[in-house]
Amino acid sequence: MKITVLMENSAQDGLIPEHGLSFYVEYRGGRYLLDAGECGAVVYNAAKLGVDLSKVGKAALSHGHYDHADGFNAFFAVNPSASVYARPRITDPEIWAEKEYIGVNMGMFCRHEKRFDLAEGPRDLAEGLHLIPDRVKHEQSLVAETSEGLVVLNSCCHAGVVKILTQLSEQFPGTPIRAVLGGFHLMGKEGVTTLCPTPEKVRSIAAALRDDLKVQDIYTGHCTGDPAYALLEEELGDRLHHLTAGAVYEFAD
Score class of each variant (00 low, 15 high):
residue 114 K to I: 00
residue 139 E to G: 04
residue 232 L to Q: 04
residue 9 N to V: 15
residue 127 E to V: 02
residue 66 Y to F: 10
residue 115 R to P: 08
residue 65 H to W: 09
residue 48 K to D: 01
residue 110 C to V: 13
residue 196 C to V: 03
residue 185 H to I: 05
residue 44 Y to V: 14
residue 2 K to H: 09
residue 102 I to W: 09
residue 57 G to Y: 01
residue 36 A to L: 07
residue 142 L to Q: 05
residue 103 G to I: 03
residue 203 R to F: 07
residue 233 E to D: 07
residue 143 V to R: 07
residue 44 Y to G: 14
residue 85 Y to C: 07
residue 252 A to M: 09
residue 220 T to Q: 02
residue 17 P to Y: 11
residue 56 V to I: 06
residue 46 A to P: 07
residue 145 E to L: 06
residue 208 A to V: 00
residue 95 I to L: 15
residue 23 F to H: 02
residue 223 C to S: 11
residue 156 C to R: 13
residue 138 H to T: 10
residue 222 H to Y: 14
residue 143 V to Y: 04
residue 65 H to I: 09
residue 52 D to T: 00
residue 15 L to S: 01
residue 240 L to E: 15
residue 224 T to V: 09
residue 198 T to V: 07
residue 170 E to W: 06
residue 29 G to Q: 04
residue 193 T to P: 00
residue 88 P to M: 08
residue 18 E to S: 13
residue 65 H to A: 10
residue 109 F to R: 11
residue 236 L to G: 02
residue 214 K to M: 03
residue 64 G to I: 02
residue 28 R to A: 09
residue 181 L to Q: 09
residue 213 L to A: 03
residue 76 F to Y: 06
residue 28 R to E: 15
residue 247 A to N: 05
residue 54 S to N: 05
residue 246 G to L: 06
residue 180 V to E: 15
residue 226 D to F: 13
residue 240 L to Y: 12
residue 92 D to I: 09
residue 96 W to E: 12
residue 30 G to K: 01
residue 204 S to I: 14
residue 158 H to K: 07
residue 122 P to R: 15
residue 209 L to N: 11
residue 172 F to N: 00
residue 235 E to I: 10
residue 120 E to F: 10
residue 137 K to L: 15
residue 27 Y to Q: 08
residue 12 Q to C: 03
residue 47 A to C: 12
residue 145 E to D: 04
residue 70 D to N: 15
residue 135 R to W: 00
residue 136 V to H: 05
residue 113 E to P: 02
residue 43 V to C: 06
residue 125 L to K: 03
residue 52 D to A: 01
residue 182 G to C: 03
